[in-house]
């Protein structure tokens, strides 16, 4: 109730209206917006130019996966600017972004859209907004922890973990492919490690202390995600 405006509630459609045709009420009240959101995202790496977006849609048109997104990248930029925090952070757009940088290269205003998407991914994890069963966010988290602990990424164990947590059926489905790779020496179940694991961990800890920001890795959302 705190987020929803009182007005919004009183205008809600009753079930009778909903039954006739599928009607969705769409209106946004200023009190529901997060005004500080855009500054936060803009401050993140390379995000400073997003205020200059002219909504031309080049990013959406250049994006190879925009037609699967619930909001196109252009819409996301506008929603960030206007404080539609919840919609943005729970959207599929952020997790569909494949980081191919086509949008960043084509943007006529030099907005680093891929980096804005990274900032949104981080916010989504930090604020516990990310879709819990989405393999993309789980993969990012698992990857993060694997590298944190071992210094290297081991594709085999990484994928197995991910499938176990999201959709064990997929693991079964991809078994044949995994076997083919294994036969050819292209995948292993061994966990790769660097020699100086201790010093790497210290290094990452030190960056965290020095930058004096909230320990994101210890956020409850992340802990839950990385515990197998």
């Amino acid at each position: 109730m705190d987020k929803k405006s009182v007005f919004a509630e009183s205008f809600a459609l009753d079930n009778a209206a909903k039954d006739i045709v599928e009607i969705r009420r769409r209106i946004k009240y200023e009190s529901e917006l997060d005004k500080g959101f855009r500054d936060k995202i803009a401050k993140s790496a390379h995000g400073e130019k997003l205020y200059g977006c002219i909504q031309c849609g080049t990013c959406s048109a250049a994006c190879p996966v925009s037609h699967y997104m619930d909001y196109t990248p252009r819409k996301i930029i506008q929603m960030v600017r206007e404080g539609f925090k919840e919609e943005v952070l729970t959207s599929s757009t952020v997790w569909l972004c494949a980081s191919c940088y086509a949008c960043s290269v084509e943007c006529p205003k030099g907005i680093k859209i891929t980096d804005v998407m990274y900032a949104l991914k981080r916010e989504s994890i930090l604020g516990n907004y990310y879709p819990k069963k989405s393999p993309a966010s789980i993969l990012a988290n698992n990857f993060f922890n694997q590298v944190l602990n071992n210094g290297r990424n081991s594709e085999g164990p990484l994928l197995i973990k991910m499938y176990l947590k999201t959709n064990p059926f997929m693991l079964f489905k991809n078994m044949a492919l995994g076997f083919k790779l294994w036969v050819r020496g292209r995948i292993s179940l061994k966990t790769e490690k660097i020699k100086d694991k201790k010093s790497l961990k210290r290094l990452l800890q030190s960056v965290e202390d020095k930058s004096n920001y909230k320990a994101k890795v210890h956020s409850p959302a992340l802990k839950e995600a990385s515990a197998v």
């Binding site: 993140s44 790496a45 980081s99 990274y118 900032a119 991914k121 981080r122 994890i125 966010s137 993969l139 990012a140 988290n141 990857f143 993060f144 590298v147 944190l148 990452l204 960056v207 965290e208 930058s211 920001y213 994101k216 890795v217 992340l222």
Partner: peptide, 9 residues
């Protein structure tokens, strides 16, 4: 993937 979780690290 790492960039998506923690940029400085």
């Amino acid at each position: 993937a790492y960039m998506a979780v923690d940029e400085k690290k």
